[in-house]
Structures are given as structure tokens and as C-alpha cells.
Design a protein around this nucleic acid. Structure first.
Lengths: 342, 342
DNA sequence: CTCGGCCCTGAATGCGCTTTCAGTAAGCGC
DNA sequence: GCGCTTACTGAAAGCGCATTCAGGGCCGAG
């Protein structure tokens, strides 16, 4: 801000005719003669004094702004998780710096660096990592000194080689459960709308699904697995590709709800009906899918809780020597987007 | 963060065997003998040095973290606007502190105060204000000294009595256009899912709609106007209430898309079909409504742009003596949730 | 009435950095 | 070879605050 010179503690002290130290103590609720405290408080009020958080942080008072980094706040998945983070942060008088990387690894690292510079007491990383493992290593290199400096890091749905606390969705078990649910409906020919297999989220969900299918003697044709970005348009594109390939799958499993939404849109645009012509299932249970027509069958994740727990992990000391890992969710919610195969 | 003592500039200077001043200059790209600069950079790299943003801000370098306050990041409307804000912020190497107030005025004021303490160069307020005008006054009282101190404030979809730049949706014109569109479809009996009339957003949208109807000789029965919070559940509840009242309206206009989504859910739960039994229209054009079945007729707002423009306003100096006001959007997009009345 | 002890206040220090200010070495013309 | 300008470097000040360390009232005890 243009230092159009702010009201400083010194101004307040002068106005109240006390020393700087007394003013500071009065404002911070330490023992001060009531009469003096009142004078200081009145002066501060009068001058619209706001302490300079930077000076305060520099002088030793702990800084109360935590950092949260996600790919895109406007994605419902991140928005929901961020909502949970903010709830806990708010309850603890913490400000949240929320950054969107727009899936640009360089930007993500830059944000970690800035947060480090801010001396944020904690950094939360939400969402899958990047395909290229070099970026992941670069990120760890940035995180390491931060951790060594006493910073706290927690991640949601993302693996790190460093010792950081994690909140992980039950990706593998959830996908397996979904496989069973779909098999129970009578489906035998499946397609999967996947993402880059380098991501553990993809590997786990796809792996869990495929393995469970295999147990039932059903195999997944590689031609029925289409990759696309984890976005609505990614789902739309992948579904379109699948249609082009004339897949005979009776059921499509999208690895994220957002992709499933895109897939449904593609199907509608091709004049196909869900679930009459083809069943669609997703993963995440973002709030909106309940209100789709038909409502989406999906693997439920307590998104808000994911964020809450991550924030809580970052706020409490990890006294043990191992990283703490919380696994959550994974229940299949069958709704109307999947039909019994007759 | 626990001052487990960080690497400071002094450490770097010592390691590179130069003075503090030289180290600072080298790191900030000022003219320094190449050889010295290299030594400093190498030392910094080696020590994983990260400048302390607080010390830096205190020492006069401008602070690059702007604040954004909205009601709830997990609401698609705010998420989309915030997305736009972040895009511009990212392009300008700005960090964004995004805070969710959860519609709690006290929390909102607390956030402004914290942002003020952070000496954030700009604060963006996104979304409607509060019903109780006392809170609005309290907010203005907090904002005023900030502005006087050189802070920049921009608001989206929210009126302030102070001189702050604004980005406003074309609420009145948009609602009027929607009225015309619905009249053109043959509807004559309308219901409105509204919010607290004290909010200008509500007053403008409802007023624009009602006035346009009146021009066509159609009046709005007060019994057909139901208030509810601007949330999915608010829409659900309001629609349910409307159903209970046995309204004869053929078309429901929800003042926000999120409410419209709730309304559609309520209708579905009551076994009614959209648009066969009743037409539904919304306002905002949040991304998801395109993918609903049926896709929602709504008044389009360029949500991302709203955020982008607001950020741009906050980033550029207002040289004029009047506040800058940008009005955007307001086009009706007719989709399948509204049907021609036969 | 005096002295020790307690509590509260004020002066001074330092957090890590940017930035002036002064100083020194190098470069140039004569 | 001398004086002057130019170009960097280093010492030091200060941003606003929390906090330590002394000092100075006041009390009760002796």
C-alpha cells in the first residue's frame, strides 16, 4: 500500500499520553491500570488504529495466516474442500490465503515460495499432483526447508515423499465398491473415463476398479479406457471419443464427478439417454450431482470434512515420528444414473 | 511459525562474504558486479534462503497480497467470480487471500480488519451485503480508514456508500429482459423465489421483473413471492412453500440459479416435471446450469469477467473523482427449463 | 518512621529487510 | 602522474511492534 503513513502505535501512545510499551500492553490485554487502558483504547478507537501485522509478525508475535493451494477454486471439488478448510480456519481466527494454480506447476511452486516468505504457519496442498515427476521433486525441494523451518504441511488427496500429514480419499476401496455395485446391476462391459495414469488418484481408482472387476472375471478392454483432464470438458471430450470408438460398454465409470457431468452432457448431445441407453457413475459426490437429472451414482467423499481434517492436522502438532494419514469416504451411493441391466 | 530461526539475509551475506546491502541488491536484481551477484545467488540457493515477506513489507517494499472476501467459496457463483479474480491476480504476481464469511457480518468485518492489518494493497468484496443496515455501516466504518490510508477497494454486486469502484450485474435490466422472454412464451401467472428485499440485488431483480410485467398488464400476486436465503436449500424451501400455497403460477423465476436448482429439486421430489408442469428460470448463469436436465433458462452474467474486472479496477488507479462503475451481463439465455405455454 | 518487596510504567533493544549516505577503487583526460 | 568523475560496496538508519530491563511509586512489616 502506498505508505501514505499509517496510524502507528506511537501515535496512539502519544494521543493517550503513555509510553509505547504501555500502549502495546493495553492493546494486547496485559496487566495495565484500568484507567490507562481505557485511555489507550479510546485513543486507538479514535484514531482508527490497526496494528501492522507485518511489524507484529517481525517482532515475534505468531502470524495467523495459513496458505491453501489448489488447482482451481471454481471447480466444485476444490470449492467444497476449501469450504471445510475455511470453516476450521475461521473457528481458529485464522486467515486463509487461497491460491489457484490453474494446474500450472510453476505457479504452484511459486505460491509455496510466497507462502514460505509470508512465514505462514501452515500450508495445505489440495488435489492431485502433476504428471511430470520432476515438478513433484521441485515441489518437495521447496517444501523441505519449509518443514525444517518449523512449517506445517498437510495434503489432501495427494502423495508426497516428504513426511507430511495427509488426508486421503479411499480411492482404491471406493472404486472397488463401485465395481461391485455396477456388477450387481448386471453390467459386464465397462468403459472408464480416466485421467493421466501417472497420478496416484488415477492409478488407485482405475486399479481398484479393474482389480475388482477381474475378481469377477470381467476384464477391461484398453480401448474402453479414455484419458482426459479432470474437468467437465475433459469428461465431455473423453465421452465423445468413446462414442466415436463405438464402444459397446453398457456403463461408464468416470473417475471424477466433474468428468461424469461432462460425459452426461456429451451423451445428451448425442441423443443418448442416461441411464436407459447407458449408465454413468462418478466419484467424489460433489454437492451438485444430487440435483442432476438423473441424480448421479457415485462414490461418496465427505468433501467438506476432507478440508476440515486437513486443517486440523495442520493445526495440531504431530508428536509421533510418522506422518499421520487419514483415509475417508469411499461409500457407493447408488442413484438414478445407473440402471439395472435387463 | 515457530522461530526455529530462519535463514536470514545476513546468513546469506556472510556465506557469500559480502555486506548485507550487497546481498539485498543482488537478490533484488539491482546493479552489482556479476561475480558478486553470482556468489550471493549461489549462497542463497545453497542455504534455501527465502526472504521474510514481513520484514520486507515493513522495510518499505510493497506487499503483494490482495484480499478477497466472499460469503462462501463453495457456492458456484462465488467460486466462478473468485476464479476470475485469481486469474488476474496470478498474472500480476499477486497472492490472493480469500476469506469466506459464511454470511456472518461480524466475521466479514473481522476479515476486513485483518486485511487492513496485513496492509493488503487491495480488498475485494464479492456478493450481496447484509439485511441489517447497521452492519453495513459498521463495515463502511472499517473500510473508510483503509481507503484513507491508500487502500483500494472494489466490490462486485454490492453497493457501498463509500467511494469504491464497483462491478455490478445488470440486475434490473436482466430481470426485465427475463420478464419479456417469459411473457413471450405465453406465461401470465408468475411466482418469484426471492431473497431478503433489503438487499439491493433482490430489490433490483424483483423490481425489474415486476415493473416489466406491469408494463404488459400482468401483476405479481404477493402470495406468489416467497423469500428464502440465496442457497440451494433456500430455493428448495421456497419452492416447497409455494407448492404448499397451491400457487397457480405456470412459471417460477428464481432470483439466483442456485435457488433455481433447489426449486427444481423440490419440484422433482413432488413429482412435478420441468418444464411440462411448470417452467423454471434463474439468474446468474453459473456454469453447471448448462448441464442440468433440462438446462436452465437464466439471465447470463459473465461471472469470471466480473471477478477479472473487479481485480483490474482494484489494480489500476482511479484518477477521476468519481467511483468507477462497470455494469455487465443481463442477457437472457433461453434453455429447456422454460416451455411455451399452450 | 524507615526499609524491603511488589507492581506498573517507560526507555531501549531487536526482529529482517530496504535504502540512503558516505566511502573507496577504478577509469579517464590532461 | 594528478585530479576528477563514475560505479560499486559497506555501514547505518529505520520501518512498527513486542518485550526485556530498570526505575519509581506504593504497600505492609518492622
Amino acid at each position: 500500500m502506498q505508505p501514505r503513513t499509517h496510524v502507528t502505535l506511537e501515535d496512539v501512545a502519544r494521543a493517550a499520553d503513555v509510553s509505547l510499551a504501555t500502549a502495546s500492553r493495553a492493546l494486547n490485554g496485559m496487566r495495565v491500570t484500568p484507567q490507562l487502558r481505557d485511555r489507550v483504547l479510546a485513543a486507538a478507537e479514535q484514531l482508527a488504529y490497526t496494528p501492522n501485522a507485518h511489524a507484529r509478525a517481525l517482532a515475534g508475535a505468531s502470524h495467523r495466516t495459513v496458505g491453501v493451494i489448489c488447482h482451481d477454486v471454481s471447480d466444485p471439488y476444490f470449492a467444497a474442500v476449501a469450504g471445510g478448510v475455511m470453516r476450521i480456519a475461521g473457528n481458529n481466527d485464522l486467515l486463509v490465503m487461497l491460491a489457484s494454480t490453474f494446474r500450472d506447476p510453476e505457479r504452484e511452486i511459486a505460491y509455496v515460495s510466497m507462502l514460505r516468505a509470508e512465514r505462514a504457519p501452515a500450508i495445505l496442498l489440495i488435489g492431485s499432483g502433476f504428471e511430470d515427476s520432476r515438478w513433484e521433486r521441485a515441489l518437495d525441494a521447496e517444501l523441505k526447508p519449509y518443514l525444517e523451518g518449523g512449517g506445517r504441511v498437510a495434503v489432501v488427496s495427494r502423495h508426497r515423499s516428504l513426511k507430511v500429514d495427509s488426508v486421503l480419499p479411499e480411492n482404491r476401496a471406493g472404486a472397488a465398491a463401485m465395481a461391485r455395485a455396477l456388477l450387481d446391476l448386471g453390467h459386464r462391459r465397462f468403459a472408464v473415463l480416466a485421467g493421466p495414469p501417472a497420478l496416484t488418484t488415477v492409478a488407485d481408482r482405475l486399479g481398484g476398479f479393474r482389480d475388482e472387476l477381474k475378481k469377477a472375471g470381467v476384464s477391461l478392454d484398453p480401448a474402453d479406457i479414455v484419458e482426459g483432464p479432470f474437468t467437465r470438458d475433459g469428461g465431455y471430450g473423453a465421452m465423445t471419443e468413446l462414442l466415436t470408438r463405438r464402444s459397446t460398454a453398457t456403463c461408464v465409470f468416470a473417475l471424477t464427478d466433474v468428468m461424469a457431468i461432462g460425459a452426461c452432457a456429451a451423451l445428451r448431445d448425442h441423443g443418448l439417454s442416461v441411464p436407459d441407453d447407458i449408465s454413468v457413475a462418478g466419484f467424489d459426490d460433489i454437492p451438485i450431482v444430487r440435483d442432476l437429472t438423473p441424480p448421479l451414482t457415485t462414490v461418496a467423499l465427505p468433501l467438506q470434512q476432507l478440508g476440515e481434517k486437513a486443517m486440523e492436522l495442520a493445526l495440531t502438532e504431530n508428536t509421533g515420528r510418522r506422518r499421520r494419514i487419514l483415509r475417508m469416504g469411499g461409500e457407493v451411493v447408488v442413484r438414478a444414473s445407473t440402471a439395472k441391466l435387463t
